[in-house]
Design a protein around this nucleic acid. Structure first.
Lengths: 155, 155
DNA sequence: CGATATTGTATGCCTCGCTCACAAATTTAT
DNA sequence: ATAAATTTGTGAGCGAGGCATACAATATCG
């Protein structure tokens, strides 16, 4: 369920080593792999879980809202919502005020899965925290935030 | 070519805000979008570019080597190599010592594109560096490295 | 009212990432 | 030297995510 294990020598590249975007991508990949390990029995992805949490804690949100928060296209969000609804984890409803909107809500099955998932999240969090002091951990989060937040600010 | 632009209020979640893995994912997404903007005319992805640089600076590497370095499955690497070879940017050859291996090399077209791409990389680097002091920048890289390197160390 | 923007949806295309299975070659063990 | 295990590339298949484009319905603003 993972990439091969490097024990032998592996090619490196001077011009690659200090490139931030590579480290970012590799780190994200590592987390993603760890995530699917930890959550394998729940069959859920990082994006899906985040989406569900967002729905649970913002009753009545719409797909567009989620897209804005998680910086995804409307069409992309729809795919995710379709998959979650297809599994009976969330439910679409009608907004009383705006007929274009669809309110999103967690089903009972979804809530059940979420309560398990939240525990697992702790596990993932610990796996990450192992590597850092508290200060480093918060620093890292803050620095990362600058990357995606400035992306927003640009408009 | 991008996600919608949040100007309005957007749902947030207390339990989501300090989750490191979300910031990591969003940051990576933001970089990816910026990347495809900057490199749009070259029609190349982050992964593809990294792969090509790796090949160029490690003459005769194999697909498996790349997989280990970039932490990707053999099968995944093959897909990437296929696409690059299909566009005539790289070339497969035969290893003189090991008949299982395929040596990878950059074609002339590939080298031409790489020289442009390296300039664009600077642009992406600057876009990132804007947000950070030098110390922060290096700190961030170092912290990220801990995430994917420990992943390796686990074996 | 009319023009403009927002929301959801459908379609289609592409990249990445994985599993499983297989064959050929190489290395290690007996 | 022969047998066993490992490495390498490949093929087929599956699914998620991410995008553009286009369309219809609804809201909002001038």
């Amino acid at each position: 369920m993972n990439a091969p294990l490097p024990l032998t020598e592996v090619p490196t590249s001077a011009s690659i080593d200090h490139v931030l975007d590579l480290h970012l991508r590799l780190a994200q990949g590592a987390v993603q792999r760890r995530f699917s390990d930890i959550f394998s029995d729940l069959g859920i992805t990082q994006t899906q879980l985040t989406t569900m949490i967002l729905i649970q804690e913002n009753a009545g949100t719409s797909q567009s809202d989620i897209g804005r928060t998680l910086q995804m296209d409307r069409a992309t969000v729809m795919g995710i919502i379709n998959r979650l609804e297809g599994r009976g984890l969330i439910q679409r409803g009608q907004s009383p005020t705006d007929k274009r909107r669809q309110t999103l809500a967690i089903t009972e099955a979804g809530a059940a899965m979420l309560s398990i998932a939240r525990e697992r999240s702790t596990e993932l969090g610990n796996w990450l925290k192992e590597r850092f002091s508290d200060a480093e951990f918060h620093m890292l989060a803050a620095l990362l935030k600058r990357i995606h937040e400035v992306d927003i600010k640009a408009f």
